[in-house]
């Protein structure tokens, strides 16, 4: 599989938001909030990339920048060789059918005034306006059936379903165009634990069946563990580590990853003791004013002088592991 060329290849992607300080005059230049600050990664066909990080570290923004739902400050997003960021609107529209998204809040991601049949059909009707009504109906029924929703429910409204069912409907909407990539932005965070597993298993089955690539965002490692081939750890808009999932859980490289892993309940207490790295108590710094050098240094137990001076580059550590740290 490594011989294949990547489906998606993101280079030095930056998303900065203009933030006006409170009470600022109209002519003062806004502060820059660096929500995503130079992210690089590749995604292979059929692979699942997990993205983890604390709330506010830029996971959703990264996803939305790839889908061109927020403008990027710089960088490239190569999709099968085309730079999505330099396409015009029409060109981008053509690619939208190849990539779909699933959202965190299952109910909020469905328009309450539309029936689920209309909701699931919308992408199909948008990209293939000439498809006959009968065909749309058949496709909608098929895909609903695939995600485990009885197709005779097509005339019901979202509020008549449970959270897990709504998420399945969201998945059906993402599948109807048979995309190559689905970006799942915390798809199970809002669900009960028992239902989380069902939804994750459904996603994994579908991925196997259709040979999809997935980007799976979550804010804790335990959820991603099950589904990911590789995992990327974000901190304040920066990638601090990308590893094969196995490797990351066995031998986390970056101090931040180690801290995250130590927070995950691990059945083997010995392994736990070995991995013990506690975060310093300092608060998460504001992305408006990130620390100089290594963004993690204000909370890093291993920080040295060099960490405040230069930003550590992401370097290859073998075993498919890349870590951004001066010390480790």
């Amino acid at each position: 599989m490594n011989a294949q060329s990547p489906l998606l290849s993101v280079r030095d992607l930056k998303v900065w938001f203009d933030i006006k300080p409170k009470g600022a005059m109209p002519w003062t230049s806004p502060d820059k909030l660096k929500a995503v600050d130079g992210v690089d990664f590749d995604l292979m066909p059929g692979e699942t990339l997990g993205i983890v990080g604390e709330s506010g570290c830029g996971k959703s923004t990264l996803a939305r920048a790839i889908m061109r739902m927020v403008p990027a400050e710089g960088g490239t997003v190569l999709w099968l060789g085309d730079d999505l960021l330099s396409l015009n609107k029409q060109g981008m529209r053509e690619h939208r059918k190849e990539m779909q998204m699933i959202f965190q809040d299952p109910l909020a991601s469905l328009n309450p005034r539309m029936t689920i049949g209309q909701i699931v059909a919308e992408p199909l009707k948008t990209h293939y306006p000439d498809v006959s009504k009968a065909e749309v109906k058949t496709r909608v029924r098929e895909v609903l059936d695939r995600v485990g929703i009885l197709p005779n429910m097509i005339n019901r409204y979202p509020h008549e379903f449970s959270g897990g069912q709504c998420q399945r409907i969201g998945i059906a909407r993402a599948l109807i165009l048979r995309p190559q990539l689905i970006i799942c932005d915390e798809p199970v965070s809002a669900l009960d634990v028992s239902i989380q597993a069902q939804v994750i298993n459904l996603l994994m089955d579908i991925q196997q069946e259709m040979g999809l690539s997935l980007i799976f965002i979550a804010h804790d490692l335990s959820v991603v563990k099950h589904i990911s081939t590789r995992v990327m750890v974000l901190y304040l808009g920066n990638v601090v580590e990308i590893s094969e999932a196995e490797q990351l859980y066995r031998a986390p490289g970056h101090p931040y990853t180690q801290a995250l892993i130590s927070a995950v309940p691990i059945p083997d207490p010995k392994a736990h003791a070995e991995n013990e790295v506690m975060l310093l108590d300092a608060d998460l710094p504001s992305p408006l004013n990130p620390p100089s050098g290594c963004v993690f240094r204000t909370r890093c137990p291993l920080a040295e002088k060099v960490c405040a001076e230069t930003k550590p580059p992401l370097t290859d550590r073998g075993n498919g592991q890349q870590v951004a740290c001066h010390v480790i």
Binding site: R64, M69, R96, Q100, N111, R113, P123, T126
Partner: peptide
């Protein structure tokens, strides 16, 4: 999120306003 979903799928702006916002 349902509006984001529509944007992500590539639904045109007038359609989003008429179909998703106005109702």
């Amino acid at each position: 999120e349902f509006v984001e979903a529509a944007i992500a799928t590539g639904v045109s702006t007038p359609k989003i306003i008429i179909r998703h916002i106005v109702p």
